[in-house]
């Protein structure tokens, strides 16, 4: 089109191969990243029947596990573990707190079941007065660095409860509060019976 009287345009060259390779790697990397993010967003919750990675809960003083000031999931192999996420600012948590405590009372003596309260994004003074209000006696500790909640559910809301069997396999997920003691027991008892 335009006449170029003096300027000789550069010789026509395509994109060098190494640039092409870089571009495609970058593009596919980005798409891979999005795909991974999307998968995580689509399945935010840990799947039932998958093995739970190990984690440690530091415990509030007065709410220790057999006098230990922190408890590791792997130490609890052979026991059914109920992990309950709660917070003092969460209203629905209050509806299940008493039921959880009663359920705990029913298992405490035999020692085959461990309840772990994990206090999610909460402040200690408020958490303590909550636990006192509901006479909670099972081990409780803060979700330090929100690490534990991120293992179970990327978009955790409270309350949520995860029940893990003797082999460390996740067996049951409860989103929202339990409605009764019987409801909790109906999940745990079959696991104790080895089913």
């Amino acid at each position: 089109m335009t006449q170029e009287p003096t300027n000789v345009a550069a010789p026509k060259r395509g994109v060098p191969l190494w640039v092409q390779i870089l571009v495609w790697i970058g593009l596919l990397g980005l798409l891979g990243l999005l795909a991974a993010g999307l998968l995580k967003a689509k399945n935010p919750i840990m799947a039932v029947r998958s093995s739970v990675p190990d984690f440690t809960v530091p415990l509030f003083s007065g709410y220790e596990y057999n006098t230990a000031s922190e408890v590791k999931l792997s130490e609890l192999k052979g026991k059914v573990v109920l992990v309950n996420f709660w917070a003092s600012w969460c209203q629905p948590c209050r509806t299940e707190a008493a039921d959880l405590e009663s359920a705990w009372q029913s298992y405490a003596e035999k020692g085959q079941v461990v309840f772990l309260g994990v206090d999610y994004v909460d402040t200690e003074p408020e958490a303590r007065s909550y636990m006192t209000d509901f006479n909670i006696s099972y081990p409780n500790g803060p979700d330090m660095g929100t690490r534990i909640s991120q293992i179970f559910n990327r978009n955790l809301g409270v309350p949520e409860t995860y029940i893990i069997d003797q082999e460390g396999i996740l067996r049951f997920i409860q989103i929202g509060p339990f409605q009764s003691v019987a409801e909790i027991q109906s999940v745990i008892d079959p696991l104790l019976a080895g089913r």
Binding site: N7, K12, V15, Q20, L27, L31
Partner: peptide, 23 residues
Amino acid sequence: GVTFVTSVALLIYRWKDLKAEVE
């Protein structure tokens, strides 16, 4: 994925035709 990959591929394919007329 489809639109981005297609359009970038097209651009690379036509790259040499799009050289500047003036430097």
